[in-house]
Design a protein around this nucleic acid. Structure first.
Length: 145
DNA sequence: TAGGCCATCTGGTCCT
DNA sequence: AGGACCAGATGGCCTA
């Protein structure tokens, strides 16, 4: 019994017409199987992508959002969040550098007015600093663009 | 009912 | 050759 090469795209022409029919139907069957396998792989890939989005949603702030963020919103929020954290880090570094400078040069001052961290200052202003810094809302997305 | 969001299928392209 | 990735098409579900 002759076997067909599934890799060949052209139908194999044989004196007996039987193989042509059989080969093409086998090839069709193989193609269908490969398509189904590819569909399953694609489904798994997208599911993996969605679990990644879910994990991202968990670590991104959603203040005032009872509805879950869409994928686009999640990405935009993550971007804003990272930018906010970066800014906070930079500010913290700047403040600690200032503190060092002050402690070197102004030792005779008693620190209250100089040694305040932003968080403490903001708390004194009535609103938590971190909340003010990170309170991003979907309507702020344009800022990140 | 229109519009937004999503899942799935599908064919094309690139990479190993 | 086969898998991963991507983008377009399509249909379902939900909400204003």
């Amino acid at each position: 019994m002759k076997s067909c090469k599934a890799s060949s795209l052209e139908p194999v022409v044989e004196p007996g017409a039987g193989c042509v029919v059989k080969c093409s139907s086998e090839r069709l069957e193989n193609a269908a199987k490969r398509r189904l396998a590819a569909n399953a792989r694609e489904r798994r890939r997208m599911q993996g992508l969605n679990t990644a989005f879910d994990r991202l949603r968990k670590v991104v702030p959603q203040w005032g959002q009872d509805k879950k963020l869409s994928k686009y919103e999640t990405l935009q929020m993550a971007l804003s969040y990272i930018m906010a954290l970066t800014r906070i880090l930079a500010e913290a570094e700047r403040f600690s550098a200032e503190r060092e400078w002050l402690s070197l040069h102004c030792e005779h001052f008693h620190g209250d007015s100089y040694h305040r961290y932003p968080a403490q200052k903001a708390a004194a202003d009535g609103e938590p600093y971190a909340h003010r810094a990170l309170s991003y809302h979907p309507e702020h997305f344009q800022i990140a663009n």
